[in-house]
Design a protein around this nucleic acid. Sequence first.
DNA 1: TCTTTCATTGCAAAATTTGCAATATAAAAT
DNA 2: ATTTTATATTGCAAATTTTGCAATGAAAGA
Lengths: 309, 309
Amino acid sequence: MIDLKDAATFLRLCETANLTRTAALCNVSPSTLSRTLNKLEGILHTKLCLREKKGVFITEAGHKFESFARKALNEYAELEASLNNTVQSISGIVKIYCSVTASYLFIPRLLNELHLIAPNLEIKLETGDPAEALDKLEGEDIDFVISALPNEIPDNIKYVDLVTFPLILISPKKPLFSCETDLNSFDLSEVPFVMPEKGQLRNEVDKFFHSLESPPHIYSEVAGHEAIVSLTALGFGISVVPRLVYDISPFKNDVYVVKELPWSNFRVALCCLKNRAKLRSVKIIHDLALRVAPSFTPDLTRRRTDLSS
Amino acid sequence: MIDLKDAATFLRLCETANLTRTAALCNVSPSTLSRTLNKLEGILHTKLCLREKKGVFITEAGHKFESFARKALNEYAELEASLNNTVQSISGIVKIYCSVTASYLFIPRLLNELHLIAPNLEIKLETGDPAEALDKLEGEDIDFVISALPNEIPDNIKYVDLVTFPLILISPKKPLFSCETDLNSFDLSEVPFVMPEKGQLRNEVDKFFHSLESPPHIYSEVAGHEAIVSLTALGFGISVVPRLVYDISPFKNDVYVVKELPWSNFRVALCCLKNRAKLRSVKIIHDLALRVAPSFTPDLTRRRTDLSS
DNA sequence: TCTTTCATTGCAAAATTTGCAATATAAAAT
DNA sequence: ATTTTATATTGCAAATTTTGCAATGAAAGA
């Protein structure tokens, strides 16, 4: 019989239309996902999707299953809600560290839901440079961080994907100089650059310049993604930031988006240490994120599709 | 996450309110069922039922889960139907052997559903003495039998419970003799008895007389349950038959039901050989039965409850 | 008090699931 | 045309989970 988890997995597959990426999103290997699909199809005696190199095409039967899955999972969510699954007993403090942008985007939803579930659980929130996030997790007494995943994910952390989005190259609108021409036509190293101090964003930027084979002319190094947009808007130089940070910045209108960086996607995830994942309070939040995460991802899907076209 | 199979299991538990019996119906051990419940409760962070010696009491949360399960399983059934899960490709012949009574009760529903699923699968139906059923399964080229399960279930057969019901002692209304007085007050061995030739019914009858410590006065031995009622109605003697056979007999009005035999329940199941259970056509029917079986059992529940009061 | 009935747990065997690495194959890039 | 990239699937061994038996415990009934 169908496991609702598999149903949820299939829903994600329908959104991304890509087996490998879905697998990553669900924290399983592609082979496992492949076998999950086989299992589902075996149970239902029907092909649910055609899996080709070009993409995953949901069949008619697949769409029927999709709508079943959606219904069933909604009802399951209702059930959970109606069970009023409050864990009064759980109290204490959970500390979360994240960037300001993340605090705008994810924290409200997360804490809202959390309060319904565990009203006595207190949350301490600290915002700061996301570059420090993963280190904080190991060093200090932080339970969760919201962070971009590094390419090599340390195997002592457990994570839940929240969103993935591209990095963009932005330049000031101020008349410091004009960047409206094609950026590939001149040397980026001649233009002052606002560089993130460290962290995953720094890695990606380094990678970008490495691929251009022209080192950047670093004007200033900045800690904190939001500040990068601010400095750029003030005309200090061009820079690279996650699109989300740009979208939300109050200086959005003072900068141009020059282009998206290809192959540089930011996977933002809620992370905790595997050790502590067994703690009741940590587990509750992790599970909650697992449930809520898909509602953050539609953006991702649209973006992916846009990119591929 | 919830597996729909566990949800179905829970529904059955709600009906029978008895863990051990539910386990038997679901073909799992009580320990497994116990653990299944723990798992469910762990996932939902709620107690679903209080399991006491006196019986299983569904909690409020349990009832919520029950209605969720019912909804979800209905939708699943709809999905299967809408997938129009016809297996055109499957053709061939499947042979089923059962009693006439079984053919009245189960076969129509079963074949109806089967035809929707596998229209090209041909069914050969043979009715006869259920005593022979299990032997036929091993000997001849019969794929399925509907049979009462023996106390020691051979481990080369796979089965799906259909119904369970009590055996009853019946006597003719004809003026051969009157049995309206308490049967325990006179010696059963003085009364002519219509004895089933062999099979599980015979075993149960033997057990009954053994417990009375008075051997029966066997008037005749008969093959086939239905014929026993007929002979009894004609005044040949008293007899023991499954209640279901009595309920359905055209001679129902010509016999009295003296009493139910305690502890003698007939578990009727659809059986096949484990070897052949892997065959596509056999598997399809087995799965179908698994799905349809619960709709036969409410009778059982009522009966059980009646008995226990 | 003794027996019966029922649900739960330790434990070891059995079954299933998992991810890695290898394979295969189509599209894209050169 | 050939190489490279991206993607899905399978063999296989390890890890995890599930299972049933037998033992335990605990309440109800005789």
